[in-house]
């Protein structure tokens, strides 16, 4: 036990867990006695409490949510179809499926587009994927700078119209009016040519 205000290294190590309230009754009693005799330890508890409060209040960026659950279920279904080895070992998922996951997400987007299109024809509500809606889907390299992305988008005659999704997918539309197939194809070629910036590009 610390005396005369001296620091006690063992009790110092417990201070973060005193702050989060998870110490045993015995440890808690020892820390409280320590705090009574040591100003610096009390200051440290105040600091740790402020840190904890702010760590707890950090905003939560969007997690994958339902999209992630759908992706997981597709993986599970695929695993079942492939009859995973019966050794009891957990099947490791490697990076090979990332393009598949992206493609699957795109399939959902395309399906949504078709549904909106059908809805339009039947007099339903007009969706966002109209004339000016996204015609291309891309992901950018994590290392790409804002300037690089801007240059690539401008050279391809495109602009961001949607996204990013939880998987980092952006929807692009053409800057020029109309969505002629040839223009879209031309933009796609230019995007794919910059593989250092655009890691994935497909028609919507």
């Amino acid at each position: 036990m610390a005396e005369n205000g001296k620091r006690d290294e063992e009790l110092d190590l417990l201070l973060p867990w005193y702050v989060n309230g998870s110490l045993s009754a015995e440890e808690r009693t020892a820390v409280e006695a320590y705090l009574e005799s040591n100003v610096q330890a009390r200051e440290e508890v105040a600091l740790l409490s402020a840190m904890r409060q702010n760590v707890k209040e950090q905003p939560l960026e969007n997690s994958p949510g339902d999209l992630g659950l759908q992706r997981l279920k597709r993986e599970i279904k695929r695993g079942d179809q492939q009859q995973a080895p019966t050794t009891g070992k957990v099947v490791a998922i490697s990076s090979w499926w990332r393009p598949l996951a992206v493609a699957a997400c795109l399939a959902v987007v395309v399906q949504a587009g078709v549904m909106i299109s059908v809805s339009d024809r039947t007099g339903g509500d007009v969706g966002i994927a109209g004339v000016n809606g996204p015609v291309l889907q891309v992901t950018f390299a994590p290392t790409a700078t804002e300037q690089e992305i801007r240059e690539v988008l401008q050279s391809a005659g495109t602009t961001i119209a949607d996204g990013p999704t939880a998987l980092g997918i952006y929807g692009l539309r053409l800057l020029a009016p109309g969505n002629e197939s040839a223009n879209i194809e031309e933009a796609l070629v230019k995007l794919k040519a910059r593989g250092d910036v655009v890691t994935f590009a497909e028609r919507n």
């Binding site: 939560l60 960026e61 997690s63 994958p64 949510g65 992630g68 659950l69 992706r71 997981l72 993986e75 599970i76 695993g79 957990v90 099947v91 490791a92 998922i93 990076s95 990332r98 996951a101 992901t139 994590p142 939880a166 998987l167 980092g168």
Partner: peptide, 30 residues
């Protein structure tokens, strides 16, 4: 999902990777 994603995100500092790893974790749990 939220708790696990947040923990992974805190370790990786990359939301794309974190979403990927979350999927791996839930797959292994299953």
């Amino acid at each position: 999902e939220g708790r696990v994603y947040r923990f992974i995100r805190s370790k990786l500092n990359d939301s794309f990777d974190a979403a990927d790893v979350l999927n791996e974790v839930m797959f292994e749990v299953w």
